[in-house]
């Protein structure tokens, strides 16, 4: 059987385009007929959160997910960490001529599954087909909106953060990066690590619902924990002290990092967030996080400290103190 592939005709706007949209996307996403130019949304609230993100990943399928799941989780999480309840997503696809229709369908199905899990609807979208070599298989852009309940406005800016407040992460770092790296074939290593790619909005909602002292949240994607902590000190004008011994990292990730010369603090995650919780509320926050499978290995990793020089300082495993810098450039695997 000849493998069904996407051709330039699928992007022509004609019959094939309609078929592609209906059969691969609209059907899986539960979009209702007739398909119109705009989705009309009923949102009754004062404040709407709105975000967008583009997804490119090599390889498109990796242990624990694929580019489609990533595109839903990422945008859902961007909304959720702002304190918003995600409701609607858009999804745009740039597809390289020759891309397998079966793979495209698999991506769409996993987007639909993840959207259902997260309780969001994919209501609008677009497809473009580009000539062979003009994109790397498939690029996806998702945008999302959600309502921001009253009383959560300060979460995205962190303006209520004070020295003494506690830093919490919801599990081990680096799994996504290492899973994706292991799935590439040029680094000659295989790993059992699975991406942590997951929508965290339900976990975050129960947290915000039960705790009044959630002062800041940010997902630990590109740039990793080190990137977010360095942004945070710039926002708050304080310092941060973290304890290397308390930062959870799975053994296979540690092993891969030791081998490749990577630092887990700088690796990207797709299902991990940093939470700043008011001093004294950390055990309550941990209890809620740990009751959810997506937060079962949550840990308090440090706290906000007064420091006019706005540094991120880490107590290292050996007992010394060192500065955790802003990431710069991509981490490159070392020679030996």
């Amino acid at each position: 059987m000849i493998k069904k592939i996407v051709s330039l005709g699928h992007g022509s706007g004609g019959k094939q385009t309609r078929e592609l949209i209906r059969e691969v996307f609209a059907g899986n996403f539960g979009m209702s007929e007739p398909l119109t130019d705009s989705a009309i949304l009923n949102i009754a609230c004062e404040r709407i959160a709105f975000t967008t993100d583009s997804y490119v990943v090599d390889p498109l399928f990796f242990p624990g997910g694929n580019i489609g799941k990533l595109a839903v989780c990422g945008t859902v999480n961007d909304l959720a960490v702002s304190g918003a309840r995600p409701l609607y997503l858009s999804a745009s696809f740039i597809i390289e001529e020759g891309f397998s229709l079966e793979d495209l369908e698999a991506v769409a199905v996993s987007m639909a599954e993840e959207a259902q899990k997260a309780g969001v609807k994919i209501v609008t979208g677009d497809t473009k087909v580009v000539e062979k070599g003009k994109c790397d298989g498939l690029f996806i852009t998702t945008s999302g909106t959600g309502i921001l309940p009253a009383g959560r406005e300060y979460i995205s800016t962190g303006i209520r953060i004070r020295p003494g407040d506690k830093l919490i992460i919801n599990g081990p770092l680096g799994n996504h990066s290492i899973a994706v790296l292991g799935a590439r074939n040029n680094l000659s290593f295989t790993t059992t690590v699975v991406s942590d790619c997951a929508s965290l909005n339900n976990l975050i909602e129960s947290l915000c619902d039960k705790c009044s002292e959630i002062l800041f949240m940010r997902d630990l994607t590109r740039g990793g924990l080190a990137g977010v902590l360095n942004e945070l000190v710039q926002i708050t004008g304080t310092g941060i002290l973290i304890d290397e011994n308390r930062i959870p990292v799975d053994d296979p990730v540690r092993g891969a990092c030791e081998m490749l010369g990577f630092d887990p603090l700088y690796l990207a995650n797709e299902g991990k967030i940093l939470i700043v919780a008011g001093s004294g509320t950390e055990s309550e926050v941990l209890k809620i996080l740990r009751s959810d499978p997506l937060g079962s290995i949550s840990e308090v990793i440090g706290e906000i400290i007064p420091d006019a020089r706005k540094r991120v300082i880490m107590n290292s495993v050996t007992g010394g103190k060192r500065i955790v810098d802003m990431p710069s450039g991509v981490q490159l695997p070392r020679i030996c």
């Binding site: 081990p172 959870p248 990292v249 053994d251 540690r254 030791e258 079962s296 290995i297 840990e299």
Partner: peptide, 11 residues
């Protein structure tokens, strides 16, 4: 309580 306390041999 540290839930991930593990031991990595040779490290």
């Amino acid at each position: 309580m540290i839930l991930t306390e593990t031991h990595m041999k040779y490290i």
